[in-house]
């Protein structure tokens, strides 16, 4: 396929240098990326159009339904297995962290496990991607925010290529905090949040 013509040929005008520079930047962007699909399949549009028809109840009701469903699953597991395997991870709910402007393209999902009835510990399983590797000795941290402050640390971690899965165990009552936050790990320097999510209502 032929390359697109030079910018000056495309716009065919003696533009002021600053305008040419501005258009040249966009011209460079367009040349650096692949083409978008020509169109969107009608089957996708139809399928997505049906998404809202599935309904979406109030948040608390949804959480309650999710919790009830999780409880049902656990009960079914007890029934099927006849015993509780203490090493098994059972997800209570999942939290999706949104990237801030400091880490566009990053993503993290935390599976919050069932609270252990005896120790009151909660296992966390976090899948994180899109964060750059740090220098040796430096770490990222998952922490809990309260009134805009780093209030409690869940754990420190490093990342590899692709998606990194991090296991942590804490004993906090998450209702005491406002948000989950991922940042670089030096608390004293008040690092900017890279990924964040509100603590859901219970």
């Amino acid at each position: 396929m032929r390359e697109p013509p030079d910018l000056r040929e495309l716009v065919d005008e003696d533009l002021p240098p600053e305008e040419l520079e501005r258009l040249s930047r966009v011209d460079g962007l367009l040349r650096s990326i692949p083409a978008p699909p020509h169109d969107v399949p009608a089957t996708l549009t139809q399928a997505v159009a049906e998404v809202p028809l599935a309904g979406r109840g109030p948040r608390r009701r949804r959480v309650a339904v999710a919790l009830a469903f999780a409880a049902l699953l656990i009960a079914a597991s007890f029934f099927a297995l006849g015993h509780w395997n203490g090493s098994r991870f059972v997800t209570d709910y999942t939290v999706e962290l949104a990237p801030t402007a400091s880490a566009p393209g990053s993503a993290a999902f935390i599976q919050v496990g069932e609270r252990d009835g005896d120790s009151l510990n909660v296992a966390l399983l976090m899948d994180v991607s899109g964060l750059p590797r740090l220098d040796p000795g430096e770490n990222y941290a998952l922490w809990l925010e309260k009134d805009g402050e780093w209030a409690a640390t869940c754990g420190y971690f490093a990342v590899g290529e692709g998606t990194t899965t991090v296991h942590m165990t804490v004993s906090y009552d998450f209702r005491d905090f406002d948000a989950w936050v991922v940042s670089t790990g030096d608390r004293q320097e008040e690092p900017p949040p890279l990924l964040q999510a509100e603590i859901p209502d219970f």
Binding site: V51, P52, R56, R59, E96, A98, P99, T100, A101, P104, G105, S106, A107, F109, S129, G130, P193, Q196, A197, E198
Partner: peptide
């Protein structure tokens, strides 16, 4: 549709949030 309530405009752009959802 399910998780639009988790979006906070003061914590990142809409485009970045959608990108993260798509990537996942």
């Amino acid at each position: 549709w399910r998780s639009a309530r988790s979006y906070r405009s003061d914590r990142g752009s809409a485009s970045a949030w959608l990108y993260a959802v798509a990537r996942h």
